[in-house]
Amino acid sequence: MKKTVKVFSIAIAISGIFFFTTYTGTAHGQQKDAGESIVPKSDQIPGWKARWELARVLSYAKRYNESVVEYEKILKEKPDLYEAKIEMAKTLYWMGKKDEAFRTLEEIPVEKLDGQSQAALAEIYITQKRYDKAEPLLRRLIAKNPNDYKARFKLAELLSWNKRYKESIVEYEAILNDLPEDKQVRRKYALVLMWSGRHSDAAAQLRKTLP
């Protein structure tokens, strides 16, 4: 009987220890304390990324020369960072260095260019009368967004300058189908109709543009 009491007492003691140590006390979480590192390694910003952000901010502050210097440093380290290259080209363009901007854009594979850069590059090709280079860029933009009327309008113009009137007319009609009130486009359309020998159609279109 004494032994049973002993065992019982020991069991109570063990339970007590278990109860007071396991279930009470401080809640243990993964809270970070003041002494711990405040920046997890996964969140560390690499130098090239910080420099890229700096290049952007410099361009926002219109400190274009410094911005380009930073972009060049980044591209030296990461030559395939096309997004940075595009941004550098835009910065060069804002600086008025259009030729440099153009050369920079030309170095980038077309599929890596964003829509804005493709449009800019197409425009530069058009001013240089390199229509063969501009056309695929414009077609790419239209394929991606059939409602890109600016690109379609440029394509229509480009085709007419190349005397590809039928193709040009198709593009003009596509625009006017969606934007029938655009008188400027209609006037250009009338002009192409005239060049293609459709004088009465051209006159009809011109009449529509009159007040």
């Binding site: 920046v39 910003i45 952000e53 901010v57 502050a61």
Partner: peptide, 20 residues
């Protein structure tokens, strides 16, 4: 890292010179 975070906030606020 903190300087970069501060620079980002300054950029967002439009204080480009301090961000730089």
């Amino acid at each position: 890292h903190l300087h970069i975070l501060l620079a980002r906030a300054l950029t967002a606020k439009g204080d480009f010179e301090s961000a730089i």
